[in-house]
Simulated assay, not measured.
Amino acid sequence: MESLSIGKVQLTWLDGGMTNLDGGAMFGVVPKPLWSKKYPANEKNQIELPTDPIFIQVDGKNCLVESGLGKGKLTEKQLRNFGVTKESNLEASLESLGLSPEEIDYIFMTHMHFDHACGLTKLVDGEYVSVFPNAKIITSKVEWDEMRSPNIRSKNTYWKENWEAIANQVEPFEEKWTMGPITMVHTGGHSNGHSILMIEDGGEMAIHMADLMATHAHQNVLWVMAYDDYPMDSIYAKEKWQQYAMEKNAWFTFYHDAFYRAVKWGADGQIVESLKRNR
């Protein structure tokens, strides 16, 4: 498992599963000859997209960023449509760190689309139960409201199987939420309730822009997904927060990138430092 230190805060990537989604959808209006140079596609025009949560231990608390793809929840049709080649091994990843799901104190959900939220619950004796029963689940109020009352478009990704069993654990925030060196900020864009996460400690910084910048190949502020509900909000937020983070020489961390866990970019837009994902 790959790890990155931000001051005294350590980030460790866990195994949350693997999807393969349509490259055109992931890069929106960007022509394939451009995006495929940065992120290759297979013969079906799919690109490899992990769903790997980040474990953070801070101030004596065990935290997760996102929850992975889950295991045993998707139908054969869903597994096929989402190009799932591997379901989550999140509990085994935690075990390798000497932890159980019951020891997780916080889960930071940038948004609650299925590929981020399926790992929150699991089937036990025919009923969905919380995988992390003692965790406080932090997400924006806008996201939590839509999760429970999705619209005609978002109902395809906001599933009751992923929220009903954990409803009493969710602590929604309005615009900003902070705990020690960790801050979540509501941005909108990819979803109306989408948030980003920042870690600042010891003069160092990491920014997790989640699905506003799903992979290193989404660095260009105009390269946004066809999946984004509010693409102009995505562009605005990417421009604002990318500039802010670049000025602080921040690491950009990823949940979906098949090649990098984190990168730093120079002023010329080239990667100057990176933590590669073991493939």
Rank of each mutant, 00 (worst) to 15 (best):
G193L: 01
G188D: 08
K37F: 13
I271F: 04
P101L: 02
E174A: 12
P50F: 01
P150Y: 03
D22S: 15
P150Q: 01
K38M: 10
P172C: 03
F114C: 03
E66T: 13
K122W: 09
H111S: 11
N151V: 00
V185R: 06
H111F: 05
H186C: 07
N62C: 04
P50L: 01
Y230K: 13
S5L: 13
L212S: 04
K240R: 14
A245H: 05
M112P: 13
M205E: 07
S96G: 13
E95W: 09
T157D: 14
K86C: 02
D59W: 02
W159N: 05
N249H: 10
M225L: 08
I104A: 02
I152Q: 14
F173G: 00
T12D: 04
N45I: 06
Y244R: 14
F173I: 00
G28L: 05
V142E: 15
L222V: 14
N278D: 12
Y158K: 12
E161S: 14
I137L: 10
K73E: 11
M198G: 13
Q57R: 15
L4D: 07
P172Y: 05
M213S: 10
S149H: 15
Y230C: 14
S130H: 03
K238Q: 05
S88E: 05
S93N: 06
G203T: 02
W241R: 01
I137A: 07
D257Y: 07
Y227K: 09
E247V: 03
H256V: 01
M18H: 08
P31Q: 10
I166C: 01
V9L: 05
G189Q: 02
A245I: 03
W177F: 08
S36P: 07
V65Y: 05
G126W: 01
N278V: 13
M112S: 15
E127N: 14
D211P: 07
L64C: 07
V224S: 02
V263S: 00
K38G: 08
E171M: 11
M246N: 11
S154V: 00
M179P: 07
Y260V: 08
C63G: 07
G119P: 01
M26L: 08
G202Q: 02
P50N: 02
E76F: 11
P181E: 02
A226L: 09
M1V: 11
S191R: 14
F55Y: 11
S234Y: 00
I271A: 02
P31E: 09
K73Y: 12
K248R: 12
N81H: 09
E175P: 00
Y227M: 10
M1R: 11
E175H: 09
E171G: 07
E239Q: 14
I199V: 10
K238G: 02
G83I: 00
Q270M: 09
T139V: 10
N134Q: 09
Y158Q: 08
P31A: 08
T178D: 11
L99A: 03
A217S: 09
D115K: 03
R277M: 06
K38W: 05
G16D: 04
G119R: 04
G119I: 02
Q219E: 12
L14T: 05
R277G: 06
Q242T: 15
E161I: 11
W35H: 07
L90E: 05
N151Y: 03
A206C: 12
